[in-house]
């Protein structure tokens, strides 16, 4: 039977004092191990019918172009043995160039952009490749600790090919000076793991007089190697 590798040590703890909202939103009872049976090794398959034209271009607003630094965000979705995850749905959402979300709860004094909703989606191609055109999001304040600012980021949601692979994460930008005080980023205890959430500036993929580019590969849990059967005596 297929078993997906245990990657629990990569992920943040559910109870993390630095991020105050975890206090009442983490289970206290021990987790029960769920074996990887049929429901866990399968996942929904979504086709192009889930997409509308320009869903992967967040810069097109109803009255014109969104304001901000135009960027290409692209990369591959892979499993931990390097094999691509083709034809999988990738959903993103983000703040605008000024760090403001189009959401009733976000009321900090930074302007909304009528031409930026901040939501996008695409499906990886047969090599696991995805590409978005968007605006570089701004940093934004929140109330977790005094003078708290989230580093610029784009929220990503991925399905993979198994329930075990479902992942929601955030993509960051290189050398952000706000990492040091951000509990989300620092909740990932292994520094090398945290760096895997940071995209790379990709000069090769920039487009002259059009857009800068960032590359980010997303790695999902892969299968444990099948043990080789002992030959029968």
């Amino acid at each position: 039977m297929t078993r997906f590798r245990d990657d629990a040590e990569v992920h943040p703890p559910m109870d993390y004092a630095g991020y105050k909202s975890t206090a009442l939103r983490h289970p206290k009872e021990p987790l029960i191990i769920l074996p990887h049976r049929l429901t866990e090794v399968t996942a929904p398959v979504f086709g192009e019918d889930r997409l509308r034209e320009y869903d992967n271009d967040l810069t097109r607003g109803p009255q014109g172009e969104a304001i901000g630094q135009r960027i290409i965000v692209h990369g591959h979705v892979k499993e931990d043995d390097g094999r691509p995850v083709p034809n999988t749905l990738v959903e993103i959402w983000q703040a605008n160039a000024g760090g403001r979300y189009r959401h009733a709860v976000d009321q900090w004094p930074s302007p909304l952009d009528p031409n930026f909703t901040g939501a996008g989606r695409t499906i990886t191609d047969d090599k696991g490749y995805f590409r978005f055109l968007t605006i570089r999001p701004g940093a934004y304040p929140w109330r977790n600790h005094p003078n708290a600012w989230r580093p610029a980021h784009i929220h990503f949601s991925l399905f993979g090919r198994a329930f075990t692979q479902r992942l929601v994460t955030q993509m960051y930008f290189p050398d952000d000076p706000l990492f040091f005080q951000d509990p989300m980023y620092n909740s990932v205890r292994d520094e090398r793991a945290a760096k895997r959430m940071v995209s790379a500036f990709d000069y090769e993929s920039t487009e002259d007089h059009w857009a800068l580019a960032y590359r980010w590969d997303i790695v999902l849990r892969g299968e444990e190697a099948t043990p080789t059967e002992e030959p029968h005596a």
Binding site: Y19, D81, Y101, H103, L167, V188
Partner: peptide
């Protein structure tokens, strides 16, 4: 190759 860490969906 190691997996990409999870992050919260956040308020939005």
């Amino acid at each position: 190759m190691s997996t990409t860490p999870s992050q919260t969906v956040g308020p939005y």
